[in-house]
Design a protein around this nucleic acid. Structure first.
Lengths: 160, 160
DNA sequence: TTCGGTATTGATATGTTATAACATATCTAC
DNA sequence: GTAGATATGTTATAACATATCAATACCGAA
């Protein structure tokens, strides 16, 4: 996948590759990528945007499964805790990780307020700066959430 | 107030000073710090931690006001949109700004997962790095949310 | 192989956070 | 003092998330 999430990309390939990566990592780490978990990951990858838990439930129900809230939340917990997906706090929604090879990491997200597109990016030096600043204050960082809200390139052009 | 939020400080003075700042800024900018908005800001300042909207409603109800959800959310929207308070996405909660002189700004928060303490900090170069990285990708940042979760100094010592 | 523990799923109920919608009151400028 | 804008009161409901407990599937050890 391209470095720049805003560009077009080979979507089918990106889905297949992400699934393969998840399966490989689960096998390597003794995790169980069960049918439910895999299906939820597939849904996130297909949509390629942030989905609420109830959006996922709706998809599952449309497929004939009588899916109740815990079904989605359990699968999402698994995917998030192992780095296959991320929670977007700002949207109360979830998105497939675009860098699943890296395992648990500290991503940053750009969220378009117009089209709700979400792009993930690494944040090399910024991350270090924040964590070390916290460390100086005696605070031990374990997880981080960095979310930038604004206008994506497409929406900037559409409504300048 | 001290630079380091984890330290003790003059709480009464901090409340009075923050309220005075808010009143001065509202006067200067033609904003209306109505009784409800002021009361909600006072509650946030008194607690000096992140409060959910329904925590605030409970306080208001205890004071005899029959407060319904929109009462809290409207006051919080006002306070947040003008930089007198911040929303902590991770906690679905709100906290008084400790740097209200600066108007709208881009804060970062450290959230203790053990005691729920929230400390606000600026983030000089990290902020610039993130925003400029986004700009390079064509994304125009309008707001940001940076939240670090971990253990505060006190909780690190208590359970090492 | 079967036993027993652990992890996962199924199902119901409920808790928590946030907003829609519309009526009324208050302020401000003209 | 009236009009327009802003703020508040009130009811209802949408949207997001978890607790609980029973049933089943998986998996390693005896």
């Amino acid at each position: 996948m391209s470095q720049n999430q805003f560009h077009d990309h080979d979507h089918q390939g990106c889905i297949a590759s992400a699934l393969a990566t998840a399966e490989a990592r689960c096998a390597a780490e003794g995790l169980r990528l069960t049918a439910q978990r895999k299906r939820v990951l597939e849904i996130l990858l297909e949509e390629h945007r942030a989905l609420g838990a109830y959006d996922i439930l709706a998809r599952l129900s449309a497929e004939g499964q009588n899916a109740q809230p815990p079904v989605a939340y359990r699968a999402l917990d698994f995917l998030v805790s192992h780095g296959f997906a991320h929670r977007i706090e700002r949207l109360n929604a979830y998105i497939a990780c675009t860098l699943p090879n890296e395992g648990a990491h500290m991503p940053a997200f750009m969220i378009c307020r117009n089209c709700d597109m979400v792009a993930e990016t690494g944040r090399p030096e910024a991350e270090l700066g924040l964590v070390s600043e916290a460390k100086n204050l005696g605070f031990a960082v374990e997880r981080s959430s960095v979310e930038l809200e604004g206008l994506c390139p497409a929406c900037r052009e559409a409504r300048p």
